[in-house]
C-alpha cells in the first residue's frame, strides 16, 4: 500500500494562487472556504529582507492531531496515508478543527453554505451544480482530501498518481511552475523521496509531532 505525500518546491513557487483556485473549482468550495492557501510574509530587515511564500494544505499527518481529537472516529488516517473524514460519523464538535496546528479544517454549516460568490445576486450555475455534484454535509467538518477521488479513479484506470493528470490532485496539475510533486512516501525510489533526500525536505511545524506527509524544499 502506498502512502501518499507531496513535496512543495518553495523555490519554484511564485505565489500565483493557481493551487488555491483550482482546488476551489475541483471541490466546488463556497466563498471563504479553502483547502489550499498561500501564505505570504517576509523576514529580515531592509535592505536584506526577503519574501516568504508558503503554499499550504492539509498535511495528511500520520500522527494527526485531528485524528487524536476526534471523539467519534470520523476523522481517520486511511491505509494510503490520506487523512479522511467520514461525514456520516462527524458530530461537528470541531475538536479536530481547533487541534490542527495547521488550521486546515473548515466547519461547514448553513452560514457557509448560504454564501454566494456574487453576494446578494443569487448562486451561479456553477455553485448550484457543485452543491448537487459534490455535496458537503451540513454540520460537519471539511478539508483537503488529497483529491482522493481523483487518485482512486486514476488507480482504477491503471494510472499513476503524481504522474498522470487524471490520478493526481488538482493542485499538482494546475501548478504552472512544477512546484508540487505528488507520490508515494513508502516507495524509497519515488521522485518525492529522492527530492526529500537530496534537497533536505522539511515538514511544517515538525515540533508538534504530527509527522506531516507534505514536505517543503527550498
Amino acid at each position: 500500500m502506498p502512502r501518499w505525500g507531496m513535496v512543495i518546491d518553495v523555490k519554484r513557487c511564485i505565489a500565483c494562487w493557481g493551487c488555491t483556485i483550482a482546488c476551489k473549482e475541483e471541490h466546488f468550495l463556497p466563498p471563504g472556504v479553502f483547502f489550499n492557501r498561500v501564505l505570504i510574509g517576509e523576514t529580515g530587515k531592509f535592505p536584506s529582507s526577503s519574501k516568504l511564500i508558503y503554499p499550504i494544505l492539509c498535511n495528511h499527518c500520520s500522527d494527526a492531531a485531528c485524528v487524536e481529537a476526534c471523539p467519534t472516529g470520523a476523522t481517520y488516517v486511511r491505509e494510503d496515508g490520506i487523512v479522511a473524514i467520514d461525514d456520516t460519523k462527524c458530530v461537528g464538535c470541531r475538536a479536530c478543527l481547533v487541534s490542527c496546528p495547521y488550521q486546515q479544517r473548515t466547519y461547514y454549516d448553513q452560514k457557509v453554505k448560504d454564501k454566494e460568490y456574487f453576494p446578494g445576486q443569487g448562486k451561479t450555475e456553477m455553485e448550484l451544480i457543485g452543491e448537487k455534484l459534490y455535496p458537503f454535509k451540513l454540520g460537519t467538518v471539511i478539508k483537503c482530501n488529497f483529491c482522493s477521488e481523483r487518485i482512486e479513479d486514476g488507480l482504477k484506470k491503471g494510472l499513476t498518481p503524481g504522474k498522470d493528470e487524471d490520478a493526481s490532485p488538482a493542485c499538482v496539475n494546475i501548478c504552472p511552475v512544477n512546484a508540487r510533486v505528488f507520490g508515494d512516501l513508502d516507495d524509497p525510489n519515488s521522485e518525492i523521496n529522492r527530492m526529500i533526500m537530496e534537497k533536505k525536505g522539511k515538514q511544517l511545524r515538525k515540533e508538534f509531532g504530527t509527522e506531516p506527509a507534505v514536505y517543503y524544499i527550498d
Partner: peptide, 25 residues
C-alpha cells in the same frame, strides 16, 4: 456548465504540464 479550467499539457504555451496561473484558473 463550465466548472473548471486547467492548462493543456501538450502545449508549450503556458505553465508546466496542465499548469495555469491563479487568475487564469
Amino acid at each position: 456548465v463550465p466548472v473548471k479550467i486547467e492548462g493543456i499539457k501538450e502545449s508549450t504555451m503556458g505553465g508546466a504540464n496542465a499548469g495555469l496561473c491563479g487568475k487564469g484558473t
